[in-house]
Amino acid sequence: MSQNAAFTPPPDARAYRLRTARGEFAVVDSPVAGGAEAKGVVLMLPGFTGSKEDFTLLHEPLGARGYRTVAVDGRGQYESDGPELDEAAYAQAELARDVLAQVAALETRVHLVGHSLGGQIARAAVLLDHSPFVSLTLMSSGPARISESQQQRVKLLRDALDTMTMAEVWEVIQAMGPPEEVGGPAVGPADPERLRNRWLGTSPAQLRATGRQLCAEPDRVAELAAVPLPYHVLSGAYDDTWSVSLLDDMARRLDARRTVVPGAEHSPNTDQPLPTARALADFWDDVPTQSPQRPTGS
């Protein structure tokens, strides 16, 4: 895990609120370098306690390879609105429908990338309707629930949120160590004040609901394998949220391209952004514009 991402987007990127049929979502939308026509559009979903800023270091190298990138805060994450108390609003199916609405608002099919929790939400969106997607990349996102050690951390966070304010929980996190070491797979920028602002901008109901999802997610790989899309499973060389061997096995079950990024852990997007961007773009370059249909169960 890492804290080396920055909040400052590339110079040509636009930060705005994407209007959809399911509400507005904060995005950073970065064009192709030099104003050229994009080879494709990429929608990137962050992980638990994360935000769109976790993809900041990928925008420029992917733009240089010809891809427009759109990173989004999900419902209740950082700069996207969401209810503070209603956990039902953050059911996985609701978050998946948000993703479908985001793609509809972009008015083009997209390569979908989900990091950690974002990968499981991305999977749920594809299982609802795969037609808006050109491909799916699961980045450090496993087949089912998170590891026992991470479940314990998430439970500690959920218990704290039941009795403390977000500001109080933040102070406890600071006393216990770097924020990514408490409560699961969070990554983020090095600026402590901006990290704090991101934390305070996130809905506690979103954290409680998605934390439960991470601890109880069923294995849906067989369902996903029956969907006719090209898949990519990308991770670091070490991961304590889902083991690398578990991700290897998931890739085999999906008949997916498999990338292991040397020198990276749970967040290759921030640990090793350049080789991560290269692996992503290499995969997309090999995906036909019209993705071939695969037989059910392949």
Rank of each mutant, 00 (worst) to 15 (best):
223 E>P: 04
161 L>C: 02
68 R>N: 10
47 G>M: 01
281 A>E: 01
140 S>Y: 00
82 G>C: 09
136 L>P: 06
185 P>T: 07
77 Q>E: 12
286 D>I: 06
281 A>F: 02
47 G>P: 01
69 T>L: 05
35 G>L: 03
271 D>H: 03
93 A>M: 04
86 D>H: 02
31 P>E: 09
292 P>Y: 05
286 D>M: 13
186 A>F: 06
126 V>H: 10
147 S>F: 04
3 Q>A: 13
199 W>Y: 07
223 E>H: 08
76 G>C: 09
153 R>N: 11
296 T>Y: 13
171 E>N: 11
183 G>D: 01
95 L>S: 03
61 P>S: 07
268 P>E: 08
145 R>L: 13
53 E>M: 05
123 R>K: 12
237 A>Q: 14
24 E>W: 01
226 A>F: 05
139 M>S: 12
245 S>L: 08
117 L>W: 14
121 I>Q: 01
91 A>T: 12
252 R>V: 15
234 L>N: 02
253 R>E: 04
133 F>S: 00
217 E>P: 00
169 V>I: 02
191 D>G: 00
49 T>W: 04
261 V>E: 02
88 A>E: 15
74 G>V: 03
243 S>L: 14
171 E>C: 04
114 G>I: 03
119 G>T: 03
199 W>T: 02
218 P>D: 01
255 D>R: 15
124 A>Q: 11
6 A>G: 03
113 V>E: 05
6 A>R: 09
230 P>E: 13
98 D>L: 10
89 A>G: 08
214 L>H: 06
261 V>Y: 02
293 Q>T: 14
47 G>W: 00
188 G>M: 03
292 P>Q: 06
81 D>K: 14
237 A>L: 00
268 P>A: 12
60 E>C: 01
185 P>H: 05
131 S>D: 06
210 T>E: 02
192 P>I: 01
36 A>E: 14
68 R>D: 08
146 I>H: 06
67 Y>W: 11
32 V>S: 08
253 R>V: 04
146 I>K: 02
62 L>F: 03
185 P>M: 10
28 V>I: 15
55 F>G: 02
132 P>I: 09
222 A>V: 13
209 A>V: 10
199 W>Q: 00
203 S>V: 01
243 S>A: 15
74 G>H: 04
39 K>H: 13
103 V>S: 03
208 R>M: 09
145 R>T: 11
32 V>E: 09
57 L>F: 05
230 P>W: 07
219 D>H: 10
246 L>M: 15
280 L>H: 08
161 L>R: 00
38 A>K: 14
289 T>S: 12
58 L>W: 01
54 D>M: 13
176 M>T: 13
75 R>N: 07
163 T>L: 09
65 R>V: 05
294 R>D: 02
14 R>D: 08
273 P>H: 05
25 F>C: 11
160 A>F: 07
170 W>N: 03
165 T>E: 01
248 D>M: 11
207 L>P: 01
4 N>S: 13
160 A>N: 09
106 L>Q: 14
4 N>G: 09
200 L>D: 00
232 H>Q: 14
175 A>E: 14
135 S>G: 14
111 H>Y: 14
83 P>Y: 05
86 D>W: 04
62 L>W: 05
65 R>A: 14
88 A>I: 11
220 R>E: 11
211 G>K: 02
198 R>K: 15
126 V>C: 09
94 E>S: 10
112 L>Y: 08
147 S>C: 07
141 S>Q: 06
110 V>W: 08
42 V>M: 12
38 A>L: 11
